[in-house]
Amino acid sequence: MQTEKDNKQAEFDFQAKIDKGDKIEPKDWMPERYRNQLVRMMSQHAHSEIVGMLPEGNWITRAPSLRRKAILLAKVQDEAGHGMYLYSAAETLGVDRTEMLKQLHTGKAKYSSIFNYPTLTWADIGAIGWLVDGAAIMNQTALAKGSYGPYSRAMVRICKEESFHNRQGYEIMCSLSFGTSEQKQMAQDAFNRWWWPAIMMLGPSDDNSPNSDELMRWKVKMESSDSIRRRFIDRTVPQAEFIGLTVPDPHMKFNKETGHYEHGPINWEEFFNVIKGNGPCNKERVKARNEADKNGRWVREAAEAYAEKHKKN
């Protein structure tokens, strides 16, 4: 039986390992809070990939050229693959995919709030790749240095693909911005609608983010949300200027002394509202996932029944 003293020693060794830069592997001892936090983060991340297929999938059938269609298909396939990869990584912590999906379907588990916004025009596909994947990469390259082995390795691989997604999104925005006046308008409109949600998806500001210290010490969280947000803005604003788009923030200005851009006030009320379920598409997204699950049940049952009948003795 483990005594309290053993536990303390185990926790000490655990922290020492992390401080040294070693990875924690599935069979290693870990505090329950560490395990739970990772399951929460990884499943939330996996759900985001899967739910994210819906707003993007929305435009595959209407992609304006064969090349764009093929790229979008490949991108959405990547997202589905990331979802699968992340569910598997989360399973190493002792929770199975069925259970995680149940939590998504019942609304108990969250996914990135950004996917509760609709993709209204083709330019939204550009904006998602450029801004949403762009913001996600900022976060994920940091997470790739995290302490949990399976998650950090998943991140390394995912980041490679996300950077392709990011570039194709920006390329769509370039084509539109340098296209006809209608296309340029389409690009600016999408930029206006996706900018703030992308800024917010990186999480509440640091003074409003509980538990951060412990998570940083455990290298579960690698960088504060505000810091990631600053990197994202510093990188994105010049990209917008380069293609002639206007950042929809009248307060945005470059501070020569700090070398960083400074943004105007963020409407956190909107963010928390969307997280609570009041975004334009929350109900639709969860309903779509539930229906896919419900309509697919007989298919999964058929596969199981067939496998059972043809089991090799």
Partner: peptide
């Protein structure tokens, strides 16, 4: 591609795409 995100199981979503 109309199935995208609506498949009966994630593996089939990937296969169909």
């Amino acid at each position: 591609s109309e199935w995208c995100g609506h498949g009966p199981i994630l593996e089939e979503d990937i296969a169909l795409i």
